[in-house]
């Protein structure tokens, strides 16, 4: 690695890691939106990944490359428990259930002693490397892009446009919605484990309602025409607070204004490019 890049990464490591991790979170939101569902559980899935990975590291001292895949287990199990009953129905049931999940888990983290309670868990070794974060982000973007340009992607687009017509095309709505939610749980779980192992500390409030809304705003700003849209949205909303450091108290206001403006004037997001799905 050239020296200047090494220096740069050293100085801005937290920010660089945050860009990659928020990119993964944005993609985890994207897969759910891509089948026309709304989830506010991305932060909760991330928290499950973070807490389970930290326990595996601190209590069992497993190597990080083993911890990383295992950190997806808890989010996937919770996604199944929530998705199977709610995704058979059309409407906002998933959104409501996932808000509930986030709040319940927050209460659990706060009140269970071996999860650190309100103090959270600290002393986490910084084992998340930039190459892991950006490697996974790259693989996720490529995989989602490949899926988007295929029969599976066409089925997802059909569900988004007209559920009844999609069903009559032979598309099993529940199966696609559940598959998307599970993929989303995996991505959020990985992001949680990577985030925890690059920040040395995790606490209950990092995975509540507010981060859930921030993750949604990544996708709203970037648009869901391609998987790149949400990642660009995440990067803008991650860099913006750094640029606006002087207005510390107003940062959330800026985020809110951006979301409102994006919804009003850019309903398809910044990257309104639409993929050509038919030609593989």
């Amino acid at each position: 690695m050239p020296e200047w890049l090494d220096d740069f990464l050293w100085t801005y490591q937290n920010l660089v890691h945050a860009l990659g991790i928020n990119g993964l979170l944005a993609l985890s939101m994207y897969v759910v939106l891509a089948v026309g569902q709304l989830s506010l559980g991305q932060a909760a899935f991330m928290g499950l990944g973070a807490y389970s990975s930290v326990l595996l590291t601190l209590k069992l001292d497993l190597p990080f490359l083993a911890v990383l895949p295992l950190s997806c287990v808890a989010p996937v199990l919770f996604a199944l428990a929530i998705g199977v009953p709610t995704l058979r129905l059309s409407g906002v049931y998933l959104a409501i259930a996932t808000i509930g999940l986030g709040e319940v888990l927050r209460a659990v983290y706060l009140n269970v002693d071996w999860l650190g309670g309100a103090l959270g868990l600290s002393g986490i070794p910084g084992r998340a490397e930039s190459w892991m974060i950006f490697g996974l982000l790259g693989v996720a973007i490529l995989a989602l892009w490949a899926v988007g340009r295929s029969a599976i992607g066409r089925a997802m687009a059909a569900i988004r446009e007209d559920e009844t017509a999609a069903q009559v095309m032979g598309i099993n709505l529940a199966r696609y919605r559940l598959g998307a939610l599970l993929a989303s749980a995996v991505l959020a779980g990985l992001a949680g484990a990577l985030g925890a192992h690059s920040s040395s500390f995790i606490g209950p409030n990092e995975y509540g309602f507010e981060p859930a809304v921030t993750i949604l705003s990544f996708a709203l700003l970037g648009g869901i025409g391609t998987p790149l849209g949400p990642v660009v949205g995440a990067w803008i909303l991650t860099l913006l607070p750094e640029v606006l450091r002087g207005f510390s108290d107003l940062r959330l206001v800026f985020n809110g204004v951006i979301i409102v403006l994006a919804v009003l004037f850019l309903p398809e997001g910044l990257l309104a490019l639409r993929m050509r799905r038919h030609a593989a």
Binding site: A151, R154, A155, A157, M169, R277, H278
Partner: peptide, 12 residues
């Protein structure tokens, strides 16, 4: 599916 092309509709 109005947002898709004609061909994509048939592919769906």
């Amino acid at each position: 599916f109005g947002a898709m092309t004609v061909l994509e509709n048939v592919l769906t």
